[in-house]
Design a protein around this nucleic acid. Structure first.
Length: 270
DNA sequence: ACTGGCACCTGGGCGC
DNA sequence: TGCGCCCAGGTGCCAG
């Protein structure tokens, strides 16, 4: 169930094992992901050689001599390497079998993930209108402030909107608002530039720290190397309702915003 | 243009 | 042990 740091961890985990490899065979056991997996995927990837593994937002981009596979892990997807021929479980929907004898396996119990094939992935309808990468220079407080003028939506769903900025999911939205001292329900259009500068810095910092920690392992996430991340140990507010704020000791509060659980400190965040 | 709500799907944990 | 309910790291689409 990945946000940007978990996708990036997966990318770094699988890249060294699959870059330069030729895809000998594509096995698709179940095409029923969020959108049906097109037969274009098998047709174009079979026999192709993988040049690189990139990422845009929460999409993994497996760029090959036969076009690019666009892979989204949804809420419950994982990718990892197995020996080719390893028996598949019910949720092991796709294997890319490589010349090395290994296979890149996609597992996704809830099937909210997706797999597309495209020649120009950044022009794909799912990617074309995405906001800036949070770790790029295009994303900063000035940008957030500009985009939020006139908006009445609460700041938390505002920063989780991929049209505004990509990669900020439910965990890191709560975490970054805590770091910036901003109440998650505050209307986005009523936050000053200086506070948005703090928020942009907090988003970058928390995502970078989480990537360094190998992501957050809450239930079952693990990176492409099969190891758990350990950022969950560093979470300040997410999942900590009724526990004390690490700054002021006030009991943390939870509220539902945009149908998503939201955690904050009512004393530190205003 | 914006906003809030629903939908997709499975599994784990809980209370009874 | 079993059942029903609630919850879960995402995001496209719909109506108002």
């Amino acid at each position: 169930m990945p946000e940007l740091p978990e996708v990036e961890t997966s990318r770094r985990g699988i890249a060294p094992h699959i870059e330069g490899q030729t895809i000998a065979n594509v096995v698709i056991r179940d095409r029923r992901l969020r959108w049906p997996v097109s037969e274009e995927v098998d047709r174009h990837l079979t026999g192709a050689t993988i040049n690189s593994v990139g990422r845009r937002a929460k999409y993994l981009l497996i760029e090959t001599t036969g076009g690019t596979a666009i892979l989204h892990l949804g809420m419950s997807g994982h990718v990892y390497l197995v020996d080719t021929g390893t028996p598949a479980g019910v949720h092991d929907h796709v294997d890319l079998e490589l010349d090395s004898g290994m296979a890149l396996r996609l597992t996704d119990p809830r099937r909210f993930g997706s797999l597309h094939w495209c020649l120009e992935p950044l022009e794909h309808p799912l990617l074309a209108k995405l906001g800036p990468e949070p770790l790029s220079d295009d994303f900063n407080g000035e940008y957030l402030w500009q985009r939020s003028r006139g908006r009445r939506i609460a700041v938390k769903p505002f920063i989780m909107n991929a049209d505004v900025v990509v990669g900020v999911g439910n965990i890191y939205a709560s975490e970054s608002l805590f770091i910036a001292g901003i109440h998650p329900k505050r209307p986005a259009g009523r936050i000053a530039l200086a506070r948005y500068e703090k928020l942009a810095d907090a988003i970058k910092a928390v995502l970078e720290r989480a990537i360094r920690a190998g992501g957050t392992t809450l239930r079952d996430f693990y990176g492409g190397n099969g190891e758990s991340g350990y950022f969950q140990q560093e979470l300040d507010v997410y999942g900590r309702s009724d526990e004390p704020c690490r700054i002021c000791d006030t009991t943390l509060t939870t509220v539902v915003l945009g149908q998503r659980a939201t955690y904050y400190c009512k004393r530190c965040q205003t």
